[in-house]
Design a protein around this nucleic acid. Sequence first.
DNA 1: CTAACCATGTAATCCGTTACATGATTAC
DNA 2: GTAATCATGTAACGGATTACATGGTTAG
Lengths: 188, 188
Amino acid sequence: MAVQNKTQFAILGILSIAPGTGYDIKRYCDTVISNVWHENFGHIYPVLSSLLKEGLVDLSEDQTIVRKKVYSISEKGLEKFMDWLVMPAEYQPVRSEFMLKFLFSSNLPDDHIIKMVEDYRNRHSAKLIEFLKVEESLKNIQTEISEKRVHFLNATVRYGILTSESAILWCDETLAIFKNINIIGSKV
Amino acid sequence: MAVQNKTQFAILGILSIAPGTGYDIKRYCDTVISNVWHENFGHIYPVLSSLLKEGLVDLSEDQTIVRKKVYSISEKGLEKFMDWLVMPAEYQPVRSEFMLKFLFSSNLPDDHIIKMVEDYRNRHSAKLIEFLKVEESLKNIQTEISEKRVHFLNATVRYGILTSESAILWCDETLAIFKNINIIGSKV
DNA sequence: CTAACCATGTAATCCGTTACATGATTAC
DNA sequence: GTAATCATGTAACGGATTACATGGTTAG
């Protein structure tokens, strides 16, 4: 049975940009596309093996350095990848643990709620700063990558920025309301 | 071994508001909290069983209607739930299939990219309209639920609204850029 | 009467995480 | 020399999805 997971497509996509090792793929996830995708080593290596078995990726021959397996996407792999790429993305059900907790917190003391929202805000605030730095660095890029790809990378970063900003906005809105309730409650 | 999943806490939380059946829990997920959480029947029923075995939920005695199991949270269950509730939410790694596809689409024709972003925009646009309706209905609520809980429900809906708006904003921004590239490209 | 909805469950599968294990290379 | 990083993998487990199976109740 062929693997049906998303990890394979993430791997094929990353290899479609440039050949690399499993370690490279992981690093790419942790840096360039960290705001849209995530992978573990424990999944990357087995999936790479099965992709190789299916002929969707190749192992590069010039193994100058031992212990390092440089994979590249095969023609067959590229075909399978493109087939997946042009299909509309499936709807993904939401699961926000933070919002789930928040929703059930009506019996917790106000200051606990305020603190939890503030913490959430700080997290997104830190993310936002990160993204803004990346955005800045993309502007000054000495383009080894094609100009077109920069547009896509930039749009991805913009996605991170807008998402963070929206989360921060929600926090501010919510804090304003709950602090207000707090004051009214303590005055009555 | 005790279950360690998130589903149990979602179930305990929902039962902490009101007793109900597995079916009720599913419906609650699909409506009230659909923009923050998601569950399947195939997971709800087994987890309910194991929660019962562990004494974290009770089966109501007045089984007027057969074939219907009304669960309620036990004192022990409430304790476990509260312990989880006050812990800060774990960081959740992002996995957006749409953004993953988008990121790798630099070799696809411009009109395909524009169409995929437009579709994404339409989806969020529809969601936004839904959320705005819910927001409106919360204003006119003949409050059987406590006034405080309404604030939490409202904040959750606001989260959905802001998230949708931010996604739509990203689409508009991206469409503007890519349509512009398109024009420049066709002129040169 | 029949379609939609209410209601509960099981089985198969698999997707992904976490922990464990190992060792080479590079930078300080 | 030692800490950090590069590099590859396996094993165990669990968490969640999907499909399957069954049947009662209600509304038109």
